[in-house]
């Protein structure tokens, strides 16, 4: 076990206190003046009015995608609950009577308290039905049950349910208009 180093013996100027305080003030004032004249190097941002741009690969809250005809892309294949290491995806599958897709998720819940944001569900999905590209990181609620994101919530996630996902935010982030995050998934004349 390493012994603690003996305390450094202070020089006279250090032990007289005032000199060191002045040195500190000079440093602080220097930054203040530099920042006043060169505001671009500001490190602090005015959250939540201003947000840091997230990298493209940032994994935020999950959303569920829709087909061009408005139906859910998800067919409840159960690949994502199977691969999910946190076992936090809960799907009840059912028969879609008038839909050629035949199968759909009656309920699709993700318990965000248990999710570890690994993104395996996105990787596993054979239908590109689930993505984590919302860049939403404020995943919070007042109750545990509200931390379970439901199908409806995840479908509408980019439609203003979360204020930070609103139109202004989308414009600022260079994202697709209402209803779609990415231009490539926003088909012409879609009902939504």
């Amino acid at each position: 076990m390493a012994l603690p180093k003996p305390q450094k013996v202070l020089t006279l100027s250090e032990s007289s206190y005032l000199v060191e305080v002045l040195k500190g003030m000079v440093l602080t004032m220097g930054h203040l003046i530099k920042n006043i004249f060169d505001q671009d190097r500001f490190r602090t941002i005015e959250y939540p009015d201003v947000r840091k741009p997230m990298t493209a690969r940032y994994r935020g809250a999950h959303r569920l995608l829709l087909r061009p005809d408005g139906g859910l892309k998800c067919v409840a294949c159960m690949c994502c609950p199977t691969v999910c290491p946190a076992k936090c995806i809960n799907i009840v599958a059912g028969e879609a009577e008038n839909d050629p897709a035949e199968k759909f998720p009656i309920t699709f819940d993700i318990d965000m308290l248990r999710c570890i944001y690994c993104g395996f569900c996105v990787e596993a999905c054979p239908k590109d039905a689930i993505r984590m590209d919302t860049k939403i990181y404020e995943i919070n609620a007042y109750t545990r049950s509200d931390m379970v994101h439901s199908k409806a919530y995840m479908v509408n996630l980019m439609d203003g349910l979360k204020p930070e996902a609103g139109a202004a935010y989308r414009a600022e982030q260079g994202l697709a208009p209402d209803g779609y995050t990415n231009a490539d998934s926003a088909p012409e004349g879609s009902p939504r």
Binding site: V75, A76, C77, C79, E102, K103, P126, K127
Partner: peptide
């Protein structure tokens, strides 16, 4: 059809 096929 594997994603919707019960035999999967």
């Amino acid at each position: 059809d594997c994603p919707i096929c019960d035999q999967s």
